[in-house]
Design a protein around this nucleic acid. Structure first.
Lengths: 222, 222
DNA sequence: TGTTTTTTGTTGTATAAACAACGGAAATGT
DNA sequence: ACATTTCCGTTGTTTATACAACAAAAAACA
């Protein structure tokens, strides 16, 4: 835990707290570290969620399986992101998603219910906390709307261009790495991988984008 | 304002407050009622948002225009829902959506920034408020994930069946009205209206669903 | 280093969806 | 009650995408 102390302190969940507040909260949360191997399920559809998970290392895919076993990737989370906040915040709501380690992953497990029942929202650190969580939720909301825009384009080409230019804007740079391999990107945009590959190389031939593995570069025209 | 007092009091935003707290907050929010005609824009992409809007009457579509002018409907909001909470909560974030009155609509305009700067989160009613807003945001989050599932299906048929069965589950009934006309539903699911109509009648012929105008009924098999 | 496995790009074919055009039904307005 | 407009379903045609199969490249492993 020591090793990650500074990281935790600067994470969006605990941002702005002093050492005393942070230590108190971690105790209150009954915080502990847990490891997941690549491919392991952290949360399953139908689970009743009582913990928040703060990602310390690695990456996590938020997924859903459709009837026919086709995989939908909702989003990929990484270091400092948290999993499942929306579900613990909406009491008595079952998870409607899977959370799968996309890498060997270390998470900080926070028992949200224990913490809220203990504090009764009374202590000052809890006030900072809920403000932080509020900010996080609103940002997640906007991210989800963004994702809806990405997948709502009608052609493969438009999905790719929308996704890539949204990423560029988010990173404030025309060249950036994406967290997905080709199959995962296809599952994220809900398109066929091979058709996507084809379209990507077409876009490259036309000079709209350049890419090498997961590193993409957008030309000024995009 | 009097006319809507009870409705406001029981809305998710102000839920659980006593009369004094509510009155104080409405003042603090500089609350006022505003009317919009069908088709009028309540919020535009790029606007910097400082107000929350609580819908008192009518309905509002949250939309986005793609490059080619194609319309994407993210969701439809109705009475007691609020607009733009995520944007005011994420300070300094421009709206990336349009909010368009889908009907003649009455909203309660709440100046969020004024309220938060005045109260400095100090007063007790503000604590109830932020807890309410927190709940609302988390539910919106889950709704958005649901919507992503709906539009992430690969065929028109699967989109319709997923959407309809999700609605049925939400309403806890196999027969229900949808808030969309055909064109709006197509824009919500990002598919062609005529192709959708065709698929709907096919589903009806196969006995999976029945519908009449906006009233849908799912057979047990769905 | 050589072998195996995974990932990515390419192509041809089958299929599903978009699109355009239209007629009828329903709703709206006068 | 009639005229006008909007909405909905149907059909044929064009187009884009899924799908399958495969080869090349890269990565992982021994």
């Amino acid at each position: 835990m020591e090793k990650y102390y500074n990281q935790i302190k600067n994470s969006p969940v605990f941002y702005g707290m002093n050492d005393d507040e942070l230590k108190g909260l971690l105790e209150c949360f009954n915080a502990r570290i847990k490891n997941f191997e690549e491919g392991e399920m952290i949360i399953r559809q139908g689970d009743r969620i009582t913990n928040i998970y703060l990602i310390l290392e690695g990456a996590v895919n938020i997924e859903k399986d459709s009837y026919w076993g086709r995989r939908i990737i909702i989003t990929q989370l990484s270091v400092n992101d948290n999993i499942a906040l929306a579900f613990v915040a909406s009491k008595n709501t079952e998870s409607n998603i899977d959370a799968v380690a996309a890498d060997d992953t270390k998470v900080l497990v926070l028992n949200y219910e224990k913490c809220t029942s203990m504090c009764q929202n009374a202590c000052t650190r809890h006030k900072v906390l809920i403000n932080n969580l509020f900010d996080i939720l609103s940002k997640e909301n906007i991210e989800l709307i963004q994702k809806i825009e990405n997948v709502s384009q009608k052609s493969i080409r438009d999905k790719l261009l929308t996704y890539l230019s949204n990423e560029a804007r988010k990173r404030k740079s025309n060249s950036f790495e994406i967290p997905f391999n080709r199959q995962d990107l296809a599952d994220y945009l809900n398109i066929d991988r091979s058709a996507m590959s084809f379209e990507l190389s077409k876009l490259q031939k036309e000079g709209l984008i350049k890419y090498n593995k997961n590193l993409f570069q957008l030309s000024a025209r995009v």
